[in-house]
Design a protein around this nucleic acid. Structure first.
Lengths: 239, 239
DNA sequence: TATCCGAAATTGGGCTACCCAGTTATTCTA
DNA sequence: TAGAATAACTGGGTAGCCCAATTTCGGATA
């Protein structure tokens, strides 16, 4: 039974760009389960064997779907004890992809705007909360830049390490994760398409005032310095 | 070969809280591949059969790992054509979980702070960019509140819909997604532990000034109104 | 010689069937 | 009735198979 269910049934005429994977439709089924109110946070899922029969799919695909959700902390699996829902909202499968795949100029600027929003805040918090060790972590990339040859320590890494350190020093792990995520997307989306190290060294100089403001424990100055940093680079982004 | 590799080998004495799944270690292997510089964005992965032999795991677990990464847009699978890397950074398996699972008071406040940061910005942008339809979407939950009985339209939904609409009206999908994510986490983390609708109606009244400011196209006023909203509720959070 | 076409090998998508160890429920015993 | 032994159940993992889409590559053709 359950005829091998061809991955791409007779989809009309021209097959769409991407044929849907089975595990994605399963995730949608799970989402429907939650939205219908049949399942709430903390509840236990039906067993693999039950769902397998209900949705007419094999266990492996079921597990693929649950694994994807599990990695995002939405579902918890207890060997021998069943699976449990841990969230109230199941994200649509291509929610992430849609944003990540678009690497046009517009998206890049949108990421930039989002980054500025959160990183300015983080700089202010860092000025207020940074421990000595965290401050050192912020300064390290800058000193690297002075000491070493430009090529020895890749430029992108300097930038990444600096912003990461500031994010961490904010003392707010949630904010930190948001920043890390945006930073990652930014690098993927179009860092390579940026100025070929034109006045790159000059831009890097922007980092120093930020460090100084944080070091002196002045939140407003730190926020301003970070704002300037983003403003300066924003102009470069529009060459 | 590859002895069934018991899920939990003879882990020393007391087994830790959570025994590691195989697919997680595979993700770490993939991450190592990327960090070692053996693989860059756009490159093609070795085939399932090759990796299966290299890491001594079965194909299903390999696919579980890749699926989890695929859903996050980090990997792309082309049936018959191989798998391709789409990012430069592979997140650690419990990067998400660690934050989502902690639902203590401290985390709740951290989420709150992050939300304030991005939502204040979104309110300002919405005042500048909101279309007529988007403005209507913001006003709808408020009118619902007036018209209907308190129970007919669940309170949590009003709040959720309002903030979601503002986020969308910002015109920045990236910012919108960040807000949606934080909003979701907030609701999961501890919304239920909040005041049992004490002066809830009064708090909802805070939404009106935000709407008015956005409607009148005044970014600063909108940002201020949103800031006040968060400040007011912040006090409530500390009862 | 350059180009096009078709067969063959390759690759991911999916399924069935099986075994294992931890968890939970049940039953039997003291 | 409390407690221990046992059976049933559940997720973790493996092996092997078939299918359809994609590459690859060699041969026929212009």
């Amino acid at each position: 039974m359950a005829k091998p269910s061809s991955p791409t049934p007779s989809s009309d005429a021209f097959t769409p760009i991407r044929n849907v994977r089975l595990y994605e439709t399963i995730i949608e089924q799970i989402a429907a389960l939650v939205e219908d109110g049949q399942l709430h946070s903390g509840d236990r899922f039906p067993t693999e064997r039950q769902l397998q029969e209900k949705w007419r799919v094999s266990r492996p695909v079921l597990r693929e779907a649950f694994r994807a959700l599990e990695m995002q902390g939405i579902v918890e699996s207890r060997p021998g004890g069943g699976r449990y829902l841990r969230a109230e909202r199941i994200p649509h499968p291509d929610e992430f992809r849609s944003l990540r795949l678009s690497s046009d100029r517009e998206t890049l600027l949108q990421i930039w705007q989002a980054r500025e929003t959160v990183e300015v805040k983080a700089a202010g918090l860092a000025a207020a909360n940074a421990s000595r060790a965290q401050l050192a972590a912020i300064g390290r990339p800058l000193r690297m830049l002075e000491t070493m040859t430009p090529d020895a320590y890749r430029r992108g890494d300097v930038n990444h390490d600096f912003h990461t350190a500031v994010a961490r020093a904010s003392g707010n792990p949630v904010l930190e994760q948001v920043i890390l995520d945006l930073l990652g997307r930014f690098n993927e989306a179009g860092f390579k398409d940026l100025p070929p190290a034109k006045d790159w060294d000059g831009l890097q100089a922007d980092h120093q005032p930020i460090y100084d403001a944080i070091a002196s424990g002045d939140p407003k100055a730190a926020a301003n310095a970070m704002t300037n940093h983003f403003k300066t680079l924003h102009e470069t982004l529009e060459d």
